[in-house]
């Protein structure tokens, strides 16, 4: 379950081993934090191709910095922060190539559309997903980072999103409040 604490000594050991070229240790890190990185990227509304690129660059960045990560046990926060920066960089990049806001918006829609609609999911699931994607980017990113499994510490969340620790709780409350509003307009209680 998501709230089971992560063994931070194990995280640290795997970062140090990966820095020595240990593929198993690195695979463990990808397994552990892949969802978090993907979530942060998706919360920025990147298209499929851009999301793949940002994902790849984030892990290349980790390999680049394996020998210089200051707090190996907090590598989750480092990855969340890096994936956020790589997403913003790609969005800026994309800005120059396809600058109209409409196209940008279409792209965001596309990212949400990539869901396999053939998949039979409960009505409420789809509604929750849509409601989440209706939130502003700040809320979307915060919530997706907060639902990371294994969970990040508030310190890591703060570093990753560049927001004060003290504002995480209240912002989280506000974002979930907005989400409930979106759900209520759909006739669903969250």
């Amino acid at each position: 379950m998501a709230t089971v604490g992560i063994d931070r000594a194990k995280v640290e050991a795997n970062v140090l081993a990966a820095a020595e070229g240990d593929q198993d240790a690195f695979d463990w890190l990808v397994e552990c934090y892949g969802r978090l990185v993907w979530s942060v990227i998706r919360s920025h509304g990147l298209s499929d191709a851009d999301a793949h690129d940002a994902f790849q660059t984030t892990w290349l960045r980790l390999v680049e910095h394996l020998d210089r990560i200051r707090e190996p046990r907090a590598v989750g926060g480092w990855l969340a922060s890096t994936s956020r920066h790589e997403s913003l960089r790609l969005l800026r990049h994309a800005d120059r190539a396809r600058p109209t806001p409409e196209e940008q918006f279409d792209q965001i829609e596309d990212a949400a559309e990539t869901v396999d609609h053939d998949l039979i999911v409960a009505e409420r699931d789809t509604q929750l997903w849509d409601a989440l994607n209706e939130l502003g980017e700040r809320c979307r990113t915060l919530l997706r980072v907060l639902m990371a499994d294994p969970p990040l510490s508030y310190e890591e969340v703060s570093q990753a999103l560049d927001i004060p620790i003290g504002s995480i709780g209240p912002t989280r409350g506000r974002c979930l409040g907005q989400l409930r509003e979106h759900l209520r307009t759909r006739g669903i209680t969250g």
């Binding site: 969802r35 998706r42 998949l119 789809t126 929750l128 997903w129 989440l132 639902m147 499994d149």
Partner: peptide, 11 residues
């Protein structure tokens, strides 16, 4: 939300 995201937007 966590469950939904894992189901609908897996890596």
């Amino acid at each position: 939300l966590r469950d939904v995201v894992h189901r609908l937007d897996p890596v």
